[in-house]
Design a protein around this nucleic acid. Structure first.
Lengths: 107, 107
DNA sequence: AACTATATGTATATCGTATGACTATTGCTA
DNA sequence: TAGCAATAGTCATACGATATACATATAGTT
């Protein structure tokens, strides 16, 4: 799972969002590092729906504009949890390696 | 940075390795999840050398077979450190989101 | 003689993402 | 009232890291 996908799932874990609001939310979650373009967002959402990690959560018309809401499925929440574990495990292993390098100098 | 790249840099942070030993080391570091194929490994190493995150650390002939060693550069170590921070930050944000979901139910 | 492990590569395909152009509506303001 | 920004979403194409499959060679094992 790559960062855009991860950020989208993370944003949706807090509750439902519509597409456009995800653009702002993912940017915020990444501390400003990641700015998704509409094209990336919607193709990713389509894929995630096919994989059943994300599902539709109803449409709404606000000020004449359609809002299409999305939420995490339980499968999606589990996938996110596994992904978090992977990140933490990788980060931990790498921290150990870097410490070994700092302490031992280079072999 | 994706997982294969990350695992290769992590392995090299502990000291020099030749290509083939990285296949085993990255597998070990990932807890068996990731099995790099030779093709992925060597193309990634070539790219990392071009980007100067990794450098050659001498050749050696053992039992009639060539071993080509690699190490991290300082730039590579810094890149790995930044990457670790990114993983930790993403994992932290996602944990909070999942907790919000668990506590609040779904909105 | 065939097979497995060690060791290093090349060529091509795949897939998620990036990019950029496009459609459409509302609200503001000059 | 024409023009522009912001909101909301779609579509076509390109890119790039990795995956897959293949190639080559030596050493040791069965």
């Amino acid at each position: 799972m790559r960062e855009p996908t991860f950020l989208i799932l993370t944003a949706l874990a807090r509750g439902k969002h519509h597409g456009y609001s995800l653009l702002a939310e993912t940017k915020k979650l990444s501390g400003g590092r990641v700015t998704l373009q509409p094209g990336s967002l919607y193709t990713t959402l389509d894929r995630l729906k096919e994989e059943e990690l994300v599902q539709d959560a109803g449409d709404e018309i606000v000020d004449g504009r359609l809002r299409r809401y999305y939420t995490l499925t339980d499968t999606g929440a589990k996938a996110l949890e596994r992904e978090i574990s992977r990140l933490e495990s990788n980060a931990g292993a790498a921290r150990l390696s870097l410490q070994a390098r700092a302490v031992g100098g280079m072999a």
